Computed example of a mutant assay.
Amino acid sequence: MGGFARWITSNLGSAIPQSMAPITYGLATLAHGDAKGGALMMTAMTAAQVLGAVPIAAAGRRFSVSAYARVLVAFRSLAFAGLAIAIVGGAPVPALVAIASLAGLVNGAIFGVLRSILNDLVTANKLPRALGITATANELVFVTGPILASTIGGMSVIAAVAIMAVTSALPLVVLPRIAKRTPTPAVAQVRPKSIRLGVLVWLLAAGSAGACVASVEIGALALALRHDLAPSAAFYFTVPLCIGSVLGGVWVSIRNRRPRGRFVVGMMLVTGAGAVTVAWGGWLAAAIAGAVLIGLCLAPLGTSFSLSLDDVLHAERRAEGFALLQTSKAIGVIVASSVIAFASLEAALLTTASLTLVAAIVVALHGRQRPPGSDGAARLQAAQSSDGAFGR
């Protein structure tokens, strides 16, 4: 198995537990007669991810990145195993919430470390394709994960949690070994202020786009009811969004080029327009079309944000930088769910659309300030002149 194939297997193994968690947690607490306990477990897991992502990712800077990834993966797998044992023992809901937070504590760091490893396995001219394939595969996981959780968890919650623990441990077996990195002399040539500004711009963009996606995914049930459909018709909105995302990932993979600045700004505006269409779409077809628009932009935007962060991050800071990227998406989810909970679905969609508009303006202004011969573009052009391939 080649290096990239082993990496993407590890990445998917890491994503499966997160895709199964919402339904599995709900089923776990339902046994206690608590219908809202699952949401509390997800909140605790997400909050722990936000708090732990950067410091935990940064703590691994002195170690081999693949060895540190295995340590984080082992910790999370043990947490899921502990959750299964707690369910068997009839532990109360607060204990389940505490264990879920332990599992979430390393989620962001795992994402950041795995994404930084990809730079060691794939040459720069192949990164857009690799990220497009990853986005497509992840979207398929997040479509099938809830189905798996419902099917297996409906028969045995313990079996569903066991699957989460086993798939989470996949990187222990298949993740390629990467030697410990050594600091590069080029680090001193980049100004810290420009790095911080670039990172903040792309984190804002990723968080706002992620909030738009979350508004549709979390509000799917409310959308179904608003259009006088049965609650089970929530998939009318989530499935088109996922299909759009898969198509966007396929487009990125085939094209194998990073989207240019104006195109990125345009996709962000389309994402915001999609959210507005879902919010104000009196017709079911219009709301579905809005969800598809958001989905189509998801993979190209995710690829662009990841590559843009790559340009401004030092090699030894990539793990925490990419962990921050995941954290910004998690914060977007928190914003969307909070507005839905305390205001309305329409307010959440319009709020996230406004955030995306602001982020698009910031990205456009940031693009004008960057010199045409920036280090990131120069590195990419140099790499594209080589014959790089997956699995170095």
Rank of each mutant, 00 (worst) to 15 (best):
K180F: 13
I294N: 06
F305M: 12
A343H: 00
A211S: 09
T167F: 01
R262P: 04
Q49M: 15
S328Q: 10
P231Q: 04
N125W: 07
E346N: 00
Q381Y: 10
S245H: 09
R70G: 11
A98Q: 01
T43N: 02
P192W: 04
N256I: 01
A67T: 13
L269W: 05
L357Q: 05
A211G: 06
A275F: 00
D228K: 13
R370K: 14
I361Y: 04
I294E: 08
L355F: 08
G391H: 02
K180Q: 15
M45V: 01
S337I: 01
L204G: 02
V190R: 05
M41P: 05
L355G: 06
G89R: 11
K329C: 11
G281Y: 01
L229M: 11
D387H: 14
T134E: 14
M42D: 11
G153E: 08
D375Y: 05
A162M: 10
L204C: 03
G154E: 07
V201N: 07
I178T: 12
A179G: 08
A59E: 07
A382H: 08
L345N: 03
H314L: 02
S19Q: 05
I147E: 13
A291H: 07
V199T: 00
A135T: 01
L269A: 04
S64G: 13
L309V: 02
Q189Y: 13
A21F: 15
L307T: 04
A341T: 01
G272D: 04
A348I: 00
C297K: 04
T182W: 06
I16R: 01
R62W: 07
M164Y: 01
S344F: 00
T271W: 14
V113N: 08
A28F: 14
M155D: 10
G90P: 12
L380D: 05
